[in-house]
Amino acid sequence: MTGERRQRRDAVANRARIIEAAAQVLREEGMGADMRQIAAASGVGIGTLYRHFPTRDDLVHAVTGTDLAALANAGLSADKTAADALREFFTGAIAQLVDNRAMVDVLTGGSPADEDVQRCIAHLTRVGQDAVDRARHDHSLAADVTASDIAYQLMGLARVAQLLPDPSPSTVTRHVELALRGLIASDVAVSSRPATTST
């Protein structure tokens, strides 16, 4: 029994090391990360890695699942206009994505039928509906904007995050503002945009 308990403890410790190492490697390299690199970084053999995670997708899901859940639980701030709440939501979501290439790859590389992508689109559509409902009172969004429009704008920004050569906060802000131009009512677009300094 003592040997079995030790083996179980070792297996649990190995799994934890693999996930910790994979989180770092996948955040930096994305879905193209080499499984041998992850095994080496975690201090286990490639066979041990595959015993815990038979496929790359299994490992990626174990690593990105928490981050995807965080994105799927995020919502709009209650004390802002629809436009300002979307600006905050978009900026926070994209800032999270540019720091996690694997999560971006999951969202932009999967088919529309993939469970993770479906779950994110469904949640983002609910967030979009919240914004549309709020805009009926504050009129900060264009009248023809739909919940689906908002969801797919953010999914489009996820693709932008994947391609950005310089994902700095100012670059993220710029692309969020470009996306919001198509959503925000024309008479509030300028007044609600963050001030910029001229050079």
Rank of each mutant, 00 (worst) to 15 (best):
A41P: 02
H61C: 13
E28N: 09
A41T: 09
A23E: 05
I46Y: 05
T66R: 12
F53T: 03
M35E: 10
I38N: 00
L26S: 00
A62P: 10
Q24M: 15
A41I: 11
V63T: 04
M31I: 15
D67H: 12
E28Y: 11
H61R: 14
R56H: 09
R27I: 13
D57Y: 14
A23R: 09
H61W: 12
T55L: 14
G32F: 06
R56E: 07
D58V: 11
A33F: 07
V60S: 00
M35P: 06
L26W: 08
F53L: 08
Q37Y: 11
V44G: 06
R36G: 14
A22I: 04
Q37H: 13
G65L: 00
G30P: 02
H52W: 02
A40M: 10
G30K: 03
G30M: 00
T55V: 12
G32S: 05
L49S: 04
L59Q: 02
I38A: 00
G47K: 06
A22F: 04
M35R: 08
Q37A: 11
F53Y: 13
R56D: 07
G43L: 01
I38C: 01
T64Y: 01
R56G: 05
V44K: 01
R36F: 13
L59M: 07
A22V: 08
G47H: 11
A39W: 01
T66N: 12
E29Y: 12
T48E: 02
G43F: 03
H52L: 01
V63L: 00
T64V: 11
A41N: 07
D67Q: 14
R56F: 07
T55F: 14
A41R: 09
G30T: 00
T66I: 11
D57W: 15
T66F: 11
A23S: 01
I46G: 01
T64K: 00
V60G: 01
V60F: 06
R27H: 15
A40D: 13
A62I: 09
L59S: 07
T48D: 02
L59K: 04
A22S: 06
R36W: 15
F53G: 10
M31G: 15
V63Q: 02
A39T: 03
V44W: 01
E28G: 05
A39V: 05
R36I: 13
A39C: 12
T64S: 09
A62G: 03
D34Y: 04
F53C: 08
D67C: 13
R56I: 02
E29S: 12
E29F: 12
D58A: 13
D57R: 15
E28L: 06
L68Q: 01
Q24S: 15
T55G: 14
A23C: 10
V63N: 01
Q24H: 13
A33T: 01
V25F: 07
G47R: 10
I38V: 06
E28Q: 13
V25G: 09
P54S: 04
G32H: 07
G30C: 09
S42I: 00
R51A: 10
I46S: 06
D57M: 14
M35Y: 08
A22L: 06
L26Y: 01
S42T: 08
T55H: 11
M31L: 15
M35W: 08
E29P: 05
G30L: 05
T66G: 12
I46V: 09
I38L: 04
D57T: 14
V25T: 11
R36N: 14
V60I: 13
R27P: 07
R51Y: 05
E28T: 03
